[in-house]
Amino acid sequence: MRCPFCAHDDSQVKDSRPTEDNAAIRRRRQCEGCGARFTTFERVQLREVVVCKSGDRREPFDRSKLEQSVALAVRKRGIEQERIDQLVSGIQRQVETSGESEVPSARIGELVMEGLRQLDSVAYIRFASVYRDFGEARDFEEFASSVRDAALRD
Rank of each mutant, 00 (worst) to 15 (best):
Q68A: 15
E67Y: 03
G90E: 02
R83S: 04
R26I: 09
K65Q: 15
R77V: 11
C31P: 06
Y124A: 11
S145F: 05
R26Y: 12
S146A: 04
V74M: 05
E32V: 05
G35L: 04
K53C: 14
P104I: 07
R63S: 07
Q68R: 12
L119P: 07
Y124V: 09
G55L: 12
I125R: 00
G90L: 11
Q45L: 13
S101P: 13
D62N: 13
G33K: 00
G33F: 00
R83T: 07
R93T: 04
I79C: 01
E20S: 12
S105E: 07
Q118T: 05
I79K: 06
E136I: 04
R2Q: 12
T39S: 09
D10R: 10
E67R: 10
A137L: 15
R77L: 13
R26C: 10
L111H: 05
G78E: 10
E114G: 08
S54T: 07
Y131K: 06
C6Q: 02
V50M: 09
S121I: 08
E100P: 14
G99A: 13
F143S: 01
R93L: 06
R117N: 14
R37H: 08
P4N: 05
A144L: 03
Q68V: 09
S146E: 08
E96K: 07
E32L: 09
L87Y: 01
R126E: 02
T39R: 09
V51G: 07
E136P: 04
Q81V: 12
E102S: 12
E114T: 14
L152H: 15
S145V: 00
Q86S: 11
E100Y: 14
S129A: 00
S16Y: 15
E48P: 07
T40A: 04
G135H: 05
A24D: 08
C52Q: 12
R57E: 11
R17Y: 12
S89V: 09
R77F: 12
H8Y: 11
L111Q: 09
L119F: 03
D9T: 01
Q30M: 11
E82T: 15
R63H: 08
L116E: 02
C3T: 00
V130D: 02
R75A: 15
D10A: 10
I108V: 14
S146I: 08
E42I: 02
R17I: 03
A7E: 10
S105T: 05
V44C: 09
F38R: 10
R47A: 14
V50N: 15
S89I: 04
S105G: 12
D56K: 03
D139Q: 02
F134I: 00
L119E: 04
A128F: 05
R57W: 10
V147Q: 00
T19H: 07
C3L: 07
I125E: 00
S54D: 10
R107W: 14
Q92C: 08
K76I: 11
Q118L: 08
D56A: 14
I84W: 01
Q118E: 02
E67L: 14
A151Y: 10
Q94C: 15
I125C: 03
F127K: 01
E96Q: 05
N22G: 13
E110I: 04
H8V: 00
R29Y: 00
